[in-house]
Design a binder for these strands. Structure first.
Length: 336
DNA sequence: TCTGGGGTCCTAGGACCC
DNA sequence: TCTGGGGTCCTAGGACCC
Protein backbone atom coordinates (compact mmCIF):
# COMPACT_ATOMS: atom_id res chain seq x y z
CA UNK A 1 0.00 0.00 0.00
CA UNK A 2 2.02 2.91 -1.25
CA UNK A 3 2.29 6.12 0.68
CA UNK A 4 3.59 9.04 -1.31
CA UNK A 5 6.62 10.50 -2.91
CA UNK A 6 6.96 13.96 -4.35
CA UNK A 7 9.23 15.67 -6.82
CA UNK A 8 9.67 19.27 -7.80
CA UNK A 9 11.24 21.24 -10.68
CA UNK A 10 12.62 24.83 -11.11
CA UNK A 11 13.05 27.34 -14.24
CA UNK A 12 13.88 24.81 -14.25
CA UNK A 13 13.58 23.33 -10.85
CA UNK A 14 11.24 20.52 -10.03
CA UNK A 15 9.88 19.16 -6.80
CA UNK A 16 8.82 15.56 -6.70
CA UNK A 17 6.73 14.23 -3.89
CA UNK A 18 5.73 10.64 -3.69
CA UNK A 19 3.82 8.00 -1.76
CA UNK A 20 5.55 4.97 -0.30
CA UNK A 21 4.84 2.42 2.36
CA UNK A 22 8.30 1.31 3.23
CA UNK A 23 10.58 4.13 4.13
CA UNK A 24 14.16 3.80 3.19
CA UNK A 25 13.87 1.16 0.48
CA UNK A 26 11.31 2.95 -1.68
CA UNK A 27 12.84 6.28 -0.90
CA UNK A 28 16.24 5.12 -2.08
CA UNK A 29 14.81 3.57 -5.25
CA UNK A 30 12.98 6.78 -6.12
CA UNK A 31 16.09 8.85 -5.46
CA UNK A 32 18.06 6.49 -7.68
CA UNK A 33 15.65 7.13 -10.53
CA UNK A 34 15.89 10.90 -10.01
CA UNK A 35 19.67 10.79 -9.84
CA UNK A 36 19.64 9.00 -13.17
CA UNK A 37 18.17 12.14 -14.76
CA UNK A 38 20.50 14.68 -13.22
CA UNK A 39 23.11 14.77 -10.48
CA UNK A 40 21.46 17.94 -9.15
CA UNK A 41 19.07 16.22 -6.78
CA UNK A 42 18.42 17.42 -3.25
CA UNK A 43 16.44 15.06 -1.08
CA UNK A 44 14.53 17.06 1.51
CA UNK A 45 12.56 14.33 3.24
CA UNK A 46 11.77 10.67 2.97
CA UNK A 47 9.39 11.29 0.09
CA UNK A 48 10.39 14.58 -1.45
CA UNK A 49 13.21 15.97 -3.54
CA UNK A 50 14.24 18.99 -5.58
CA UNK A 51 15.81 18.62 -9.02
CA UNK A 52 17.58 21.27 -11.00
CA UNK A 53 16.71 20.39 -14.58
CA UNK A 54 17.90 23.62 -16.17
CA UNK A 55 20.47 21.82 -18.30
CA UNK A 56 18.19 19.06 -19.55
CA UNK A 57 17.01 19.40 -23.15
CA UNK A 58 13.31 18.73 -22.54
CA UNK A 59 10.85 21.23 -21.11
CA UNK A 60 9.83 20.86 -17.46
CA UNK A 61 6.42 19.39 -18.14
CA UNK A 62 7.87 16.59 -20.28
CA UNK A 63 10.51 15.88 -17.66
CA UNK A 64 7.85 15.69 -14.98
CA UNK A 65 5.75 13.29 -17.04
CA UNK A 66 8.79 11.16 -17.68
CA UNK A 67 9.57 11.00 -13.98
CA UNK A 68 6.05 9.98 -13.08
CA UNK A 69 6.06 7.26 -15.73
CA UNK A 70 9.42 5.91 -14.61
CA UNK A 71 8.54 5.84 -10.93
CA UNK A 72 5.17 4.29 -11.55
CA UNK A 73 6.31 1.70 -14.06
CA UNK A 74 9.29 0.57 -12.00
CA UNK A 75 7.89 0.87 -8.49
CA UNK A 76 4.12 1.33 -8.89
CA UNK A 77 4.36 4.46 -6.79
CA UNK A 78 2.46 7.65 -7.63
CA UNK A 79 4.01 11.06 -7.18
CA UNK A 80 3.11 14.71 -7.57
CA UNK A 81 5.41 17.16 -9.28
CA UNK A 82 5.69 20.93 -9.26
CA UNK A 83 7.96 22.99 -11.46
CA UNK A 84 9.04 26.61 -11.23
CA UNK A 85 12.00 28.96 -11.40
CA UNK A 86 12.88 28.47 -7.75
CA UNK A 87 12.56 25.96 -4.94
CA UNK A 88 9.94 27.87 -2.98
CA UNK A 89 7.49 28.11 -5.87
CA UNK A 90 8.19 24.59 -7.08
CA UNK A 91 7.41 23.30 -3.61
CA UNK A 92 4.16 25.24 -3.30
CA UNK A 93 3.21 24.23 -6.84
CA UNK A 94 3.61 20.61 -5.79
CA UNK A 95 1.39 21.13 -2.77
CA UNK A 96 -1.34 22.86 -4.75
CA UNK A 97 -1.17 20.29 -7.52
CA UNK A 98 -1.50 17.50 -5.02
CA UNK A 99 -4.37 19.01 -3.07
CA UNK A 100 -6.31 19.94 -6.21
CA UNK A 101 -6.40 16.28 -7.13
CA UNK A 102 -9.81 15.10 -5.91
CA UNK A 103 -9.85 11.36 -5.92
CA UNK A 104 -9.53 8.35 -3.66
CA UNK A 105 -6.41 7.33 -5.49
CA UNK A 106 -3.01 8.83 -4.82
CA UNK A 107 -2.44 11.96 -6.87
CA UNK A 108 -0.32 11.93 -9.99
CA UNK A 109 -0.46 15.68 -10.47
CA UNK A 110 1.87 18.03 -12.32
CA UNK A 111 1.85 21.80 -12.04
CA UNK A 112 4.38 24.06 -13.71
CA UNK A 113 4.50 27.77 -12.86
CA UNK A 114 6.11 29.75 -15.73
CA UNK A 115 8.95 32.15 -15.02
CA UNK A 116 7.53 35.60 -14.25
CA UNK A 117 4.24 34.24 -12.91
CA UNK A 118 5.47 33.48 -9.40
CA UNK A 119 3.84 36.45 -7.68
CA UNK A 120 0.48 36.08 -9.40
CA UNK A 121 0.48 32.36 -8.68
CA UNK A 122 0.90 33.04 -4.96
CA UNK A 123 -1.53 35.96 -4.65
CA UNK A 124 -4.83 34.05 -4.33
CA UNK A 125 -3.45 31.31 -2.08
CA UNK A 126 -4.28 31.19 1.63
CA UNK A 127 -1.45 32.41 3.85
CA UNK A 128 -1.09 28.92 5.32
CA UNK A 129 0.19 27.70 1.95
CA UNK A 130 3.37 29.73 2.40
CA UNK A 131 6.33 27.80 3.73
CA UNK A 132 7.06 28.98 7.25
CA UNK A 133 3.50 30.04 8.06
CA UNK A 134 1.86 27.42 10.23
CA UNK A 135 -1.41 27.23 12.16
CA UNK A 136 -0.29 29.67 14.90
CA UNK A 137 0.73 32.33 12.41
CA UNK A 138 -2.38 31.78 10.30
CA UNK A 139 -4.56 32.44 13.34
CA UNK A 140 -2.64 35.63 14.17
CA UNK A 141 -2.79 36.91 10.59
CA UNK A 142 -6.48 36.20 10.28
CA UNK A 143 -7.14 38.34 13.33
CA UNK A 144 -5.65 41.23 11.35
CA UNK A 145 -7.79 40.43 8.34
CA UNK A 146 -4.89 38.94 6.39
CA UNK A 147 -6.08 35.83 4.63
CA UNK A 148 -4.23 35.43 1.36
CA UNK A 149 -0.61 35.64 0.33
CA UNK A 150 -1.76 38.54 -1.87
CA UNK A 151 -2.74 40.42 1.30
CA UNK A 152 0.82 39.93 2.54
CA UNK A 153 2.28 41.09 -0.79
CA UNK A 154 0.63 44.47 -0.29
CA UNK A 155 1.74 44.95 3.29
CA UNK A 156 4.33 47.68 4.04
CA UNK A 157 7.63 46.28 5.30
CA UNK A 158 7.15 47.99 8.70
CA UNK A 159 3.96 46.01 9.25
CA UNK A 160 5.70 42.83 8.10
CA UNK A 161 8.36 43.60 10.70
CA UNK A 162 5.79 43.82 13.46
CA UNK A 163 4.29 40.50 12.47
CA UNK A 164 7.35 38.43 11.59
CA UNK A 165 10.15 40.09 13.57
CA UNK A 166 13.62 39.15 12.35
CA UNK A 167 12.02 36.87 9.79
CA UNK A 168 10.22 39.77 8.10
CA UNK A 169 12.67 40.53 5.28
CA UNK A 170 12.90 36.86 4.37
CA UNK A 171 9.12 36.54 4.44
CA UNK A 172 8.72 39.70 2.37
CA UNK A 173 10.86 38.07 -0.33
CA UNK A 174 8.99 34.81 -0.10
CA UNK A 175 5.54 36.31 -0.56
CA UNK A 176 6.81 38.01 -3.73
CA UNK A 177 7.82 34.57 -4.98
CA UNK A 178 11.55 35.20 -4.65
CA UNK A 179 13.96 32.49 -3.55
CA UNK A 180 17.58 32.15 -4.62
CA UNK A 181 18.59 29.01 -2.76
CA UNK A 182 20.41 26.62 -5.04
CA UNK A 183 19.51 22.97 -5.34
CA UNK A 184 22.22 21.38 -3.31
CA UNK A 185 23.07 18.49 -1.14
CA UNK A 186 20.90 17.95 1.85
CA UNK A 187 22.97 18.67 4.94
CA UNK A 188 22.42 15.29 6.54
CA UNK A 189 20.62 14.42 9.71
CA UNK A 190 21.11 16.54 12.82
CA UNK A 191 19.45 14.39 15.46
CA UNK A 192 18.00 10.95 16.11
CA UNK A 193 15.12 10.45 18.51
CA UNK A 194 12.36 8.09 19.52
CA UNK A 195 9.36 8.82 21.64
CA UNK A 196 6.19 7.12 22.72
CA UNK A 197 2.76 8.16 23.88
CA UNK A 198 1.40 5.80 26.51
CA UNK A 199 -2.01 4.22 26.22
CA UNK A 200 -2.58 5.30 29.81
CA UNK A 201 -0.64 7.91 31.75
CA UNK A 202 2.23 6.39 33.71
CA UNK A 203 2.91 7.20 37.36
CA UNK A 204 5.15 4.28 38.14
CA UNK A 205 8.87 5.10 38.23
CA UNK A 206 9.95 1.59 37.34
CA UNK A 207 7.82 1.59 34.24
CA UNK A 208 9.12 5.02 33.22
CA UNK A 209 12.68 3.79 33.57
CA UNK A 210 11.88 0.75 31.43
CA UNK A 211 10.50 3.07 28.77
CA UNK A 212 13.55 5.33 28.94
CA UNK A 213 15.87 2.35 28.59
CA UNK A 214 13.91 0.89 25.71
CA UNK A 215 13.93 4.22 23.83
CA UNK A 216 17.60 4.88 24.60
CA UNK A 217 18.59 1.49 23.22
CA UNK A 218 16.52 2.13 20.11
CA UNK A 219 18.15 5.50 19.51
CA UNK A 220 21.63 4.09 20.17
CA UNK A 221 21.05 1.25 17.72
CA UNK A 222 19.88 3.67 15.02
CA UNK A 223 22.96 5.82 15.59
CA UNK A 224 25.27 2.81 15.29
CA UNK A 225 23.52 1.70 12.13
CA UNK A 226 24.19 5.12 10.60
CA UNK A 227 27.75 5.23 11.92
CA UNK A 228 26.97 8.31 13.98
CA UNK A 229 27.58 9.43 17.54
CA UNK A 230 26.19 12.42 19.39
CA UNK A 231 27.21 14.59 22.32
CA UNK A 232 23.84 15.88 23.47
CA UNK A 233 21.26 13.58 25.05
CA UNK A 234 17.75 14.95 25.34
CA UNK A 235 14.74 13.77 27.29
CA UNK A 236 11.26 14.89 26.29
CA UNK A 237 8.38 14.50 28.69
CA UNK A 238 4.72 15.37 28.40
CA UNK A 239 2.38 15.54 31.37
CA UNK A 240 -1.27 14.55 31.52
CA UNK A 241 -2.31 18.12 30.61
CA UNK A 242 -0.21 18.01 27.43
CA UNK A 243 2.37 20.41 28.80
CA UNK A 244 5.68 19.35 27.26
CA UNK A 245 9.20 19.85 28.59
CA UNK A 246 12.70 19.05 27.44
CA UNK A 247 15.83 18.43 29.44
CA UNK A 248 19.18 17.96 27.82
CA UNK A 249 22.73 17.32 28.78
CA UNK A 250 25.95 17.57 26.84
CA UNK A 251 28.61 14.91 27.21
CA UNK A 252 32.36 15.34 27.03
CA UNK A 253 32.54 12.95 24.10
CA UNK A 254 30.08 11.81 21.45
CA UNK A 255 28.50 8.42 22.07
CA UNK A 256 26.26 5.83 20.48
CA UNK A 257 26.46 3.37 23.36
CA UNK A 258 23.36 2.09 25.11
CA UNK A 259 24.81 2.46 28.60
CA UNK A 260 25.85 6.10 28.20
CA UNK A 261 22.60 7.22 26.63
CA UNK A 262 20.55 5.27 29.18
CA UNK A 263 22.34 6.73 32.18
CA UNK A 264 22.17 10.28 30.80
CA UNK A 265 18.47 9.96 30.01
CA UNK A 266 17.75 8.46 33.43
CA UNK A 267 19.47 11.38 35.15
CA UNK A 268 17.42 13.81 33.08
CA UNK A 269 14.25 11.95 34.01
CA UNK A 270 15.10 12.23 37.69
CA UNK A 271 15.78 15.95 37.28
CA UNK A 272 12.25 16.69 36.09
CA UNK A 273 9.93 13.92 37.21
CA UNK A 274 8.55 13.68 40.73
CA UNK A 275 7.29 10.40 42.14
CA UNK A 276 3.68 9.77 41.16
CA UNK A 277 3.35 12.51 38.53
CA UNK A 278 1.37 11.14 35.56
CA UNK A 279 3.32 11.05 32.30
CA UNK A 280 1.62 10.96 28.91
CA UNK A 281 4.66 10.81 26.62
CA UNK A 282 8.33 10.22 26.95
CA UNK A 283 11.09 10.54 24.38
CA UNK A 284 14.84 10.19 24.12
CA UNK A 285 16.97 11.91 21.49
CA UNK A 286 20.60 12.49 20.64
CA UNK A 287 21.90 15.52 18.72
CA UNK A 288 25.23 17.17 18.14
CA UNK A 289 25.97 14.36 15.71
CA UNK A 290 29.22 13.47 14.13
CA UNK A 291 30.53 10.49 12.25
CA UNK A 292 31.86 7.93 14.65
CA UNK A 293 35.61 7.74 14.80
CA UNK A 294 37.08 5.24 17.19
CA UNK A 295 40.29 6.45 18.73
CA UNK A 296 41.84 3.26 19.99
CA UNK A 297 43.93 5.02 22.59
CA UNK A 298 40.80 6.28 24.25
CA UNK A 299 39.07 2.94 24.42
CA UNK A 300 39.18 0.98 27.63
CA UNK A 301 38.34 -2.68 28.10
CA UNK A 302 34.83 -2.03 29.38
CA UNK A 303 34.09 0.10 26.35
CA UNK A 304 35.39 -2.52 23.96
CA UNK A 305 33.45 -5.26 25.71
CA UNK A 306 30.21 -3.32 25.45
CA UNK A 307 30.93 -2.40 21.85
CA UNK A 308 31.44 -6.05 20.90
CA UNK A 309 28.25 -7.03 22.70
CA UNK A 310 26.25 -4.26 21.03
CA UNK A 311 27.59 -5.18 17.60
CA UNK A 312 26.45 -8.76 18.15
CA UNK A 313 23.02 -7.68 19.41
CA UNK A 314 22.60 -5.28 16.48
CA UNK A 315 23.45 -8.07 14.08
CA UNK A 316 20.87 -10.41 15.61
CA UNK A 317 18.16 -7.76 15.67
CA UNK A 318 18.90 -6.84 12.07
CA UNK A 319 18.68 -10.46 10.99
CA UNK A 320 15.86 -11.84 13.11
CA UNK A 321 13.88 -8.79 14.24
CA UNK A 322 14.05 -6.51 17.23
CA UNK A 323 12.38 -8.99 19.59
CA UNK A 324 15.06 -11.65 19.16
CA UNK A 325 17.25 -10.22 21.92
CA UNK A 326 15.60 -8.85 25.02
CA UNK A 327 18.06 -7.17 27.31
CA UNK A 328 15.30 -5.05 28.75
CA UNK A 329 11.57 -5.50 28.42
CA UNK A 330 9.53 -3.37 26.08
CA UNK A 331 7.02 -1.54 28.27
CA UNK A 332 3.61 -3.07 27.67
CA UNK A 333 1.84 0.24 28.06
CA UNK A 334 3.17 1.59 24.76
CA UNK A 335 0.60 2.50 22.19
CA UNK A 336 0.65 -0.08 19.43
C1' DT B 1 -10.72 18.66 20.09
C1' DC B 2 -8.75 15.32 23.22
C1' DT B 3 -4.19 15.64 20.36
C1' DG B 4 1.35 10.23 16.68
C1' DG B 5 6.17 10.31 15.65
C1' DG B 6 10.43 12.04 13.72
C1' DG B 7 12.60 15.80 12.36
C1' DT B 8 14.50 21.18 11.52
C1' DC B 9 15.24 25.82 12.78
C1' DC B 10 14.92 29.91 15.71
C1' DT B 11 15.02 32.61 19.99
C1' DA B 12 16.30 33.91 24.49
C1' DG B 13 18.78 33.72 28.64
C1' DG B 14 22.69 32.30 31.29
C1' DA B 15 27.47 30.73 32.03
C1' DC B 16 32.03 31.20 30.87
C1' DC B 17 36.21 33.01 28.84
C1' DC B 18 39.21 36.52 26.98
C1' DT C 1 39.06 44.81 42.19
C1' DC C 2 35.54 46.34 39.17
C1' DT C 3 33.37 47.10 34.67
C1' DG C 4 32.17 46.07 30.11
C1' DG C 5 31.99 44.01 25.53
C1' DG C 6 32.13 40.18 22.46
C1' DG C 7 32.16 35.43 21.30
C1' DT C 8 30.84 30.75 22.16
C1' DC C 9 28.51 27.08 24.23
C1' DC C 10 24.66 25.20 26.64
C1' DT C 11 19.80 24.82 27.88
C1' DA C 12 14.79 25.23 27.31
C1' DG C 13 10.93 26.08 24.68
C1' DG C 14 8.20 26.94 20.58
C1' DA C 15 6.78 26.94 15.67
C1' DC C 16 6.77 24.47 11.74
C1' DC C 17 7.14 20.52 8.40
C1' DC C 18 6.29 15.76 6.55
Amino acid sequence: MPMAQALRLCPDLITVRGHFNSYSEHSQMVMDILSGLTPLVEQISIDEAFLDVTDLPEESYRIAENIQVQIYSKLELPCSIGGASNKLIAKIATNTAKSSHRSDTYPMAIRIIPFGKEKSFLAPLQVGEMCGIGPKSVALLEKSGIKTIGDLQNLPIEIMGKIFGNFASEMAKRVQGMDDRPVGDYGGIKSVSNEVTFRQDIRDGIELLRAVRYLSEKVARRLRKKGLSGRTVRLKIRWKNFETHMRQTTLDQPTNQDSVIISSAEKLLHSIWKEGKPVRLIGVGVSGLDETHYQLSLLDDAYLTEKRLLDAVDFLKEKYGSDIVKKGIKPDNFRS
